[in-house]
Amino acid sequence: MALRESAEVSEDTEGDLGIVTGRGDGDAGVPHGQFLIRLADAVAGWSWDEVTRLRHIGVNLVGPEATSDAILVAAGFNGITRVADAIGIRLDSRTANASVNLRATIGIDDFAPAAKWIA
């Protein structure tokens, strides 16, 4: 779901989406992209001291509501990735077809080793 939507959005961005998996630099053409990456990392890693520091930065950089929403999105995806991983779902064709270029760019297929589905 996220990757399909991300793929559609990426058509409109001019930056290097390789930053999603650390393969690229810059802000991916997304406003305040570097800050959002750092905040996503801290929230996903439950690094609360860093989150606290970034909250303060975010309030002045993007505003309190946007900072809160970024944390809300990150929290949600911290949950939904666990559902995907714990049920062992495969990529559906709709999502795969929509995200083929994006997946190649960011290298996220590396996280789907065949062993995940070997009984």
Binding site: A2, L3, E5, S6, V9, S10, D12, T13, L17, V20, T21, G22, A28, G29, V30, P31, H32, G33, L36, I37, L39, A40, D41, V43, A44, G45, V62, G63, E65, A66, S68, D69, A70, V73, A74, G76, F77, N78, T81, R82, A84, D85, L91, I106, I108, D109, D110, F111, A112
Partner: peptide
């Protein structure tokens, strides 16, 4: 209070951090 690209960036990054394909 984020635009669509910002939301997708955060979502994709968290998926990557969690090593979720």
């Amino acid at each position: 209070a984020l635009d669509r690209a910002q939301v997708e960036l955060v979502a994709a990054r968290v998926s990557a951090v969690n090593e979720c394909f």
